[in-house]
Amino acid sequence: MNIFRFAGDMTHLLSIIVLLLKINATKSCAGVSLKTQELYLLVFVTRYLDLLYSYISLYNTFMKLFFICSSGCVIWYIREHKTVSQTYDSAQDTFRVLFLACPCMILALTVNHDFTVTEVLWTFSIYLEAVAILPQLVLLQRTKNVDTLTGNYVFLLGGYRALYLLNWIYRILTEPGYRQWIVWISGTIQTAIYCDFFYYYIKSWRNNERLSLPS
């Protein structure tokens, strides 16, 4: 594992910790998209089915379990927690997730390495992760004055993707025969989706203003 991959994973971990901290400390999930969190849970469950039959390292196993449990925990907070659930604004979080999940499944059934259940589900998770942030970005755009922690959460999540791009470039240069086109193309699209957000996040940070995205 190279430094970019590790930094990427840590940024991903940190983003989730920031999100849980925001929800737990403010007892509010204002500005957090339940749809995106549900998509992430679906991404993690379909990708990490290999927990049941293959072992890579203790590190990988721990991280996979953490991602599954933490997204489950966020969903539980938003749906079930007595006070947090009251702050969820379902009227704003209206993205149709089937419009994302169905095309991803059709693509996974068409473009994959192996037509097996686990391989198709793994490919589906790669495609779905690329677009899972969209409901969250749409919700942020509808929210005037995004709170700092929610902004930081999305920024860290995008940062994790950018570090993975560097990880792949590093691996291409150092590992002969290393290639994974499905992951590279999906990952590049995923990172590109954050460009606009990055621009406004950095702008508001430099001007010392609260983040608000133009609609």
Binding site: W122, Y178, R179
Partner: peptide
Amino acid sequence: AAEEDAKDEL
């Protein structure tokens, strides 16, 4: 086989 290595990432 190289494609399988992709699964060492998260």
